[in-house]
């Protein structure tokens, strides 16, 4: 995985974190404003509802920040995992989507990963997986965005892979065309992206682990 790739993911995550902190700050500030108001009757009831909604938002944003922190922690330990020979593909897909969400959204791509899937351990370095996922995102950005892109780790018999699904969005056909013909050949090393059995899907495999 290149330093550029890592820097881009970190930049996206930091941008996201700043937005999360901004929402927390404004929601907490609004809660403070509301408690300082002298209100009675229906207005007081309305303020109570707003107060509860602001505090809910703070809680929701803290959860998002915790997910981002998990991704940042993963990157911080990159030197330790760089030589790692295996990883949980489901976790890497999840962390990638969380960290790259802001970057993707700015280019009108909506990223998604399956949230509650079982671990899918594969004999590939997690940094190689991140690099490949970022390269796939770049291919979609290059054709103009407006695409829903999802990554799902899966296993068939003893082979592990990532299913890449392109759906929704105005530029789906362009993205599908751009992803056809293994565009990662000159980018991510040791991996192969080939059409899946279902329309709109691709299978991302690493050369030592090709799915039949």
């Amino acid at each position: 995985m290149s330093y550029t790739c890592m820097a881009r993911l970190l930049a996206s995550a930091v941008h996201d974190m700043r937005n999360i902190l901004a929402v927390i700050r404004e929601s907490a500030g609004l809660a403070q404003d509301l408690t300082s108001l002298d209100s009675t009757g229906p207005v007081q009831e309305e303020h109570k509802k707003e107060l509860a909604s602001s505090l809910d938002e703070v809680r929701r944003q803290v959860l998002l920040a915790a997910q981002l922190a998990e991704g940042l922690e993963f990157m911080a330990q990159a030197d330790m995992v760089e030589g790692a020979a295996s990883c949980d593909l489901a976790r890497v897909c999840r962390l990638f989507c969380r960290m790259a969400t802001r970057h993707a959204r700015a280019t009108q791509i909506r990223l998604q990963s399956s949230e509650h899937e079982e671990p899918v351990w594969a004999a590939v370095s997690p940094l190689d997986v991140l690099q490949a996922l970022l390269d796939i995102l770049d291919v979609c950005i290059a054709v103009g965005g407006r695409v829903d892109l999802s990554f799902t780790a899966a296993r068939r018999l003893h082979d592990e892979y990532v299913e890449v699904r392109v759906s929704g969005g105005e530029n789906t056909a362009l993205a599908l065309s751009a992803l056809t013909g293994n565009p990662l050949q000159d980018k991510s090393c040791q991996c192969l992206l080939r059409p899946g059995s279902e329309a709109g899907t691709f299978i991302l495999v690493w050369r030592s682990k090709e799915v039949a």
């Binding site: 937005n19 901004a22 929402v23 404004e26 500030g29 609004l30 404003d33 602001s54 938002e57 959204r105």
Partner: peptide, 12 residues
Amino acid sequence: DERRFVETLAER
């Protein structure tokens, strides 16, 4: 584009 942020800020 961060709706929650901008709407809360507007209210404040």
